[in-house]
Design a binder for these strands. Structure first.
Length: 589
RNA sequence: GAUCCCGUGGUGUAGCGGCUAACAUGCGGCCCUGUCAAGGCCGAGAUCGCGGGUCCGAAUCCCGUCGGGAUCGCCA
C-alpha cells in the first residue's frame, strides 16, 4: 500500500495519527536544520517537516521540485503562529519519520507550481506537466463534473446512453470527412462521424425514444480557438416531441447545472430569452448574440433615405442597408483610432466606415457634413445615442453590414468591458432558414442539415422560393457562442426526398448515400427531434477560458498537430501496402 | 488560399541602431532549526528562431523562411 491518506484530506482531527502519503514535491524550503516540503497530490497540499530530531531526513533535504515521494510521519499541530490560513491543511503538518524517493525528477521545462503564462507550444509538448498545474486541473475536474451532471440528469429523466460507431459512412453534405481506409475491402473508406446524426435518428426509428451520448465528433476543417478537429457533443434525441419539448430539456439541464456546479456564475434570465433567427440578425448582426450587453444594431435606411451622401445613396439604390451601432463614451476617439476601426471594418468585408461623434462641442466625425441636424436628431431618438457617444455606420449589403457591425460590437464589448464575465446569457435562436444558396457551386445547401424538418406551412415554397422556407431548427447560444444546435427532424420519406432533390442530389446518389435513411423512414419512423450541445465550448465559457484547448486534456494546435506525440506522422511502407494506398504528394518547394 | 501579431538563458520578461545583452524565477554550490513565492552569499546558463540584405556597426531596420497565435475563407 503506497498511502493511507491523501495530502488534501488531513485536518486537526488526524493529529496524533501516523499517516503515509505519496505525492509530488510542490515546493521545498530548507532552513539548514528543519526542512519543509509542500507535498502535492490531486487533492491538495500538505506541509511535511523534516526535523533534525527525527530520523530519515536526508531524502527530504535532497528532494527537488516534482520528485515523487512516499512520506510516513505523525500528524501534529503546527506551532502557534506558524499556521497557514491559505491552506486547507494549514493547521497541521506531518513530521517525517520515513521518506522514500519513489522517483526523482529532472528540472522541468515549465513551472508547475506557478500560474505564470508559458508559451503554448511548450505547454502542449509537455501537456502531462501542464496538466499538473492548478488551472488545468480545475478545468479537467470541471469537465468531469459537467459530464457527470449531464449523465445523472438525463438518466433520471429516462434517457438511455447508447454508443454509436466511429467507423461509419461518408456523406456528401457538410464538413470535410476524415477518411479511414478499409484493409478488408481495398479501395473503400469509412468516414469518422461528423456527428452521430443519422445514427441517433435511426435509434428513434428503433423505438429508444430518449437517447443521449457524450459523443466525439470529427470534422476535417481549419481550426479556431473554439474549433478542434475532434470535439465532444452531448448528442441528444427524443421521439414524439415538438420543438418546445426539446428546448425544455436543454433549458432544464443547463439551468440546473449552473445552479448546482457553478456557484460563481449566474444566469442572465430564466426562462431564457428566445428570438427568431431574423430578429437576431437584425438586432445583433449574427445568429449567436452575446446578450450580456446592449449596443444593438439599428437600421437607419429610412432616416437616411434622402441623405446627400453619395455612398449612402448608392448603397440604398442597390438594395443595401445603412445600419449603425453606438459606442458609449467614445466620441473623443482620435483620427487614428477611427482609422483603426475602419481598417477592422474592411477586414470584415465592409467597404468603409462612417462615424458621427456626439461631442460636447457639437457633432463631428466623417459623416458629419453629410448628415443634416434633423437626421442626427432622428438617429439619436432611434438609437438613444447621447453626448459623448460615437455612432458607427456601415452602409453595405445587409449581410456585410450585419457581419461588420456584429464584429465591431464584440470589439467594443472587449475594449469597454461591457460584458460581465460571471453572467451566463443563455438564449434560444429559433426558425432558421432551411436552405442557403451557394453562389460558388450555384446550388442550394442545407443551412442546418438535410434531415431538418421544414415548417409545414412552408412546404409549398419548395416549388416557388426555397430561400423563404423556414425550418424547425434552433440554436442554443451563450455569451456570443453557438453552444448547441438542433432541430425537429423529417420523419416522412416523401419530405426527405424533396429536400434531397432540392439539394441537387441525384436519385442514385440519394440511394447510395442515404438509402438506409429513406428506407428506415418507411418502416414506421416516429416524429422526433433533438439537439447537440458542444461540451468543449460550454466548459470553456463556464471556466472563463479564452479557447477550448484549455478545457481539453490533449488538444491539437492550430495546424491540427499533436505536438506532444508529433501526430500526424507518415505511415510505414508496410501499412500503406496493406491498405493498397500509393502516395501522390505535392512537389516540395 | 489570405491578412495581422509574436519569436531574446530552462521558464517569464526588459532592451528596439553603438552592450561585455539586463531583471526575475529555475538550476548548481555554500550558509541558515519554523518557513510557506523562505532568506543570505557565490556560480553556471542566451552567438537574441533560421537565412540573406542595409549600415562603420543589427537582438534592434528591410526581405525571405520556419514555428506559434488571432482573424477572413472554410466549419451541413
Amino acid at each position: 500500500m503506497y498511502r493511507t491518506h491523501t495530502c488534501g484530506e488531513l485536518r486537526p482531527a488526524h493529529i496524533g495519527q501516523t499517516v503515509t502519503l505519496a505525492g509530488w514535491v510542490h515546493r521545498q524550503r530548507d532552513h539548514g536544520g528543519v526542512t519543509f516540503i509542500d507535498l502535492r497530490d490531486r487533492t491538495g497540499l500538505v506541509q511535511v517537516v523534516g526535523d533534525p530530531n527525527l530520523p530519515e531526513v536526508s531524502a527530504i533535504q535532497d528532494a527537488r521540485n516534482e520528485w515523487v515521494l512516499q512520506v510516513t510521519g505523525m500528524v501534529r499541530p503546527r506551532p502557534a503562529g506558524a499556521e497557514n490560513p491559505n491552506l486547507v491543511t494549514g493547521a497541521i503538518e506531518v513530521a517525517v519519520q520515513k521518506c522514500v524517493v519513489l522517483n526523482p525528477a529532472k528540472p522541468l521545462p515549465l513551472a508547475v507550481n506557478t500560474d505564470e503564462t508559458v508559451d503554448e507550444n511548450i505547454r502542449l509538448k509537455y501537456r502531462y506537466l501542464d496538466l499538473r498545474r492548478e488551472r488545468m486541473y480545475n478545468n479537467i475536474v470541471l469537465r468531469h463534473n459537467v459530464v457527470k451532471f449531464i449523465r445523472d440528469y438525463l438518466s433520471e429523466r429516462g434517457f438511455l446512453e447508447i454508443e454509436t460507431p466511429m467507423l461509419f459512412k461518408t456523406t456528401p453534405e457538410g464538413a470535410r470527412d476524415y477518411l479511414v481506409p478499409s484493409r478488408l475491402q481495398p479501395g473503400t473508406f469509412y468516414a469518422l462521424p461528423q456527428s452521430p446524426q443519422q445514427l441517433k435518428q435511426l435509434l428513434m426509428v428503433a423505438g429508444f425514444d430518449r437517447y443521449y451520448q457524450i459523443a466525439r465528433c470529427l470534422r476535417d476543417e481549419d481550426l479556431r480557438g473554439d474549433r478542434q478537429p475532434e470535439f465532444t457533443q452531448l448528442d441528444l434525441e427524443m421521439s414524439f416531441v415538438e420543438r418546445d419539448d426539446v428546448l425544455a430539456v436543454g433549458e432544464g439541464l443547463f439551468t440546473a447545472m449552473v445552479q448546482e456546479i457553478l456557484p460563481g456564475k449566474r444566469l442572465l434570465a430564466s426562462p431564457w430569452p428566445r428570438m427568431t433567427y431574423t430578429e437576431s440578425m437584425e438586432r445583433y448582426g449574427n445568429d449567436k448574440p452575446d446578450l450580456r450587453f446592449g449596443m444593438e444594431l439599428h437600421n437607419l435606411s429610412d432616416i437616411l433615405a434622402a441623405s446627400e451622401f453619395m455612398v449612402f445613396q448608392n448603397v440604398l439604390k442597390n438594395g443595401g442597408v445603412i445600419k449603425c451601432i453606438v459606442a458609449p463614451g467614445c466620441a473623443d476617439y482620435t483620427r487614428k483610432e477611427v482609422d483603426e476601426l475602419t481598417t477592422f471594418s474592411k477586414e470584415q468585408g465592409a467597404k468603409g466606415l462612417a462615424t458621427l461623434a456626439l461631442t460636447a462641442e457639437g457633432v463631428k466625425g466623417t459623416a458629419q457634413k453629410f448628415i443634416k441636424p434633423a437626421e442626427v436628431e432622428a438617429i439619436q431618438t432611434r438609437t438613444g445615442a447621447q453626448t459623448s457617444d460615437l455612432v458607427l455606420f456601415i452602409a453595405d449589403s445587409k449581410p456585410v453590414a450585419n457581419k461588420t457591425l456584429s464584429a465591431l460590437r464584440l470589439l467594443f464589448r472587449d475594449r469597454l468591458n461591457l460584458a460581465d464575465p460571471n453572467v451566463l446569457a443563455f438564449a434560444w435562436v429559433l426558425d432558421f432558414p432551411m436552405f442557403e444558396y451557394n453562389e460558388e457551386d450555384k446550388k442550394w445547401d442545407a443551412a442546418h442539415h438535410p434531415f431538418t424538418m421544414p415548417k409545414m406551412e412552408d412546404l409549398p415554397k419548395f416549388e416557388t422560393d426555397p430561400s423563404q422556407i423556414l425550418s424547425d431548427a434552433y440554436d442554443m447560444v451563450l455569451n456570443g457562442y453557438e453552444t448547441a444546435s438542433g432541430s425537429i427532424r423529417i420523419h416522412r420519406s416523401d419530405i426527405q426526398q424533396k429536400v434531397f432533390q432540392l439539394l441537387g442530389l441525384k436519385d442514385e446518389e440519394i440511394q447510395s448515400k442515404f438509402g438506409h435513411m429513406i428506407e428506415a423512414f418507411q418502416f414506421g419512423a416516429p416524429p422526433h427531434g433533438g439537439m447537440a450541445p458542444g461540451i468543449d465550448r460550454l466548459i470553456m465559457l463556464f471556466a472563463g477560458e479564452p479557447n477550448i484547448r484549455e478545457v481539453i486534456a490533449f488538444p491539437k494546435n492550430q495546424a491540427g498537430r499533436d505536438v506532444m506525440a508529433d501526430a500526424p506522422s507518415p505511415a510505414s511502407e508496410k501499412q500503406l501496402r496493406e491498405l493498397h494506398i500509393k502516395l501522390d504528394l505535392p512537389e516540395e518547394k
